[in-house]
């Protein structure tokens, strides 16, 4: 396993008022993402725990691309990954922010 944290700044904070959300399951080739609106301003924190070692650069690229697309400022993403492919990671991140945005 490998654990690391990616920090970034988004263009804007995530709309909506939902405090937390969870999407996905830690199944083979899948991941869970816990989203918490806990960061100040437009900061974004992504904590990754993954079963696959040596892919930090890929994770950084996926996260950078995701932040550029959806601008989830103020959110901490905590991830447990069991070998998901990059497109699955992007899908879960997008599902997560959509859920957090639309939650009451």
């Amino acid at each position: 396993m490998e654990t690391f944290t990616i920090r970034a700044q988004a263009r804007a904070s995530l709309p909506g008022t939902g405090r937390q959300a969870i999407v996905g399951v830690v199944a083979s080739g899948n991941l869970e993402v816990l989203l918490e609106r806990s960061e100040t301003g437009d900061a974004v924190v992504v904590d990754v725990t993954t079963s696959a070692r040596g892919f930090r650069a890929v994770w950084e690229a996926v996260v950078a691309d995701f932040i550029a697309r959806s601008s989830p400022g103020g959110v901490r993403f905590s991830i447990h990954d069991n070998g998901a492919r990059p497109d699955t990671v992007t899908l879960r991140l997008l599902q997560g922010v959509k859920l957090l945005e639309t939650q009451p």
Partner: peptide, 19 residues
Amino acid sequence: PAERVMSPHLELFDLPPAF
């Protein structure tokens, strides 16, 4: 999940936990 009450044993087996 946000309470993070997770298995303390999976790490020994190099397995990712769930929240």
